[in-house]
């Protein structure tokens, strides 16, 4: 348990409903200062609702929010002077230039000096187009400007909703480097994203939310280690025999065939037993054409957010798994 001074965001039993639709069902977040925190969850899990609550756009039904060591509610807008946010799609006055948008928004909240505007335009690579109307900007340029807007008041805490959306590869790398640098400087970056490999590359800590509740939270390395997996690729006709061997090795661990046509089998086995797995299969005359040890964020995410298997009606023929899973709100 971190102390209040070292915690950038702490929510306790945070609940929010829209009518009968429950968006958050008791969220307990704890985001330490000076880290990049990846906030993950399927569509409708409550990520955007959380962002809106953290920026005072909406009120919780119950629960508390503490930000930067102070209890936050809508009467404490001053706390947001140290918070920068990019929520949902970036919003601007389309008839104004990038520079004018930053100047106009710089007059809201805590005053921002003009020099800061030019500094940010250069940082996000828009200085050459700073006088162009935003209505002429591409999605990626608008996203860059949104990031500049979020950083306008040199915030201690950055809340970013899908910040890499629309960015080109160079922009994504630059964003990642910037966010890591900010965290190294002691600032806290709270990133909600669906691009799991991107989060895996930049986040120190992740929290995964599903159906309005946090399902796990912790340092990324530890979470991935706790979910250690060994994946082997074999000939499809050898799947049943391989399953028996791996099930024996996994003990209580889960074993499943992920892509039946190419027979990737995933077994929850400690990473350091990968060689043992390979040997056991080889002794049974099953030679793996691929073997991977360790977990990735995508696998972890899918395991933690997958809905329970259907107990009644079988899946509709042709239904694609994943599109309708986990949508709570």
């Amino acid at each position: 348990m971190t102390t209040a001074a070292s915690t950038a965001i702490a929510t306790k039993d945070l609940r929010k409903s829209y009518g009968k639709q429950v968006a958050l069902a008791g969220l307990d977040l704890e985001v330490p200062t000076g880290v990049v925190y990846g906030f993950l969850g399927p569509n409708g899990a409550g990520k955007t609702t959380t962002m809106r609550l953290l920026t005072g756009l909406i009120r919780p039904n119950s629960g508390t929010i503490t930000m930067l060591g102070q209890k936050f509610d809508r009467t404490r807008g001053d706390i947001l002077h140290d918070v920068g946010a990019l929520i949902e799609s970036p919003s601007f006055y389309p008839h104004l230039s990038a520079r004018d948008n930053l100047i106009v928004f710089g007059a809201t909240g805590r005053h921002v000096p003009r020099a800061r505007v030019e500094e940010l335009l250069e940082m996000v690579g828009l200085q050459d187009r700073a006088s162009d109307r935003v209505s002429r900007y591409s999605l990626g340029m608008r996203q860059r400007l949104g990031i500049a807007l979020a950083m306008l008041n040199d915030p201690k805490l950055l809340l970013l909703d899908e910040p890499a959306n629309g960015l080109d590869p160079a922009g994504i790398v630059a964003l990642r480097d910037t966010l890591k640098r900010l965290a190294a400087d002691g600032k806290t970056v709270f990133v909600s994203s669906h691009i799991l490999p991107e989060v895996q590359q930049m986040a120190d800590i992740v929290g995964i939310v599903a159906s309005g509740k946090l399902v796990t939270q912790g340092p990324l390395d530890q979470l991935l280690a706790s979910q250690a997996l060994v994946r082997v690729r074999i000939e499809p006709e050898q799947t049943p025999e391989a399953m028996q061997i791996l099930t024996r090795l996994a003990g209580d661990g889960h074993v499943e065939v992920t892509y039946p046509d190419i027979a990737w089998i995933v077994a929850r086995v400690a990473v350091n037993r990968a060689a043992e797995v390979n040997k056991a299969l080889a002794q049974a005359g099953i030679f793996a054409s691929g073997l991977e040890a360790g977990s990735d964020l995508e696998t972890l995410f899918m395991q933690l957010t997958a809905p329970p298997p259907p107990t009644q009606a079988p899946a509709r023929p042709g239904a694609v798994s994943g599109w309708n899973s986990g949508v709570a709100s």
């Binding site: 920026t55 005072g56 756009l57 807008g77 001053d78 706390i79 947001l80 002077h81 918070v83 946010a85 929520i87 949902e88 799609s89 919003s91 601007f92 006055y93 389309p94 928004f105 809201t108 909240g109 805590r110 807007l149 306008l152 008041n153």
Partner: peptide, 14 residues
């Protein structure tokens, strides 16, 4: 509709 009020409020503007 442009979401500019949202931005101002999220910046701590009354």
């Amino acid at each position: 509709t442009w979401g500019t009020l949202k931005v101002a409020v999220a910046r701590g503007q009354s």
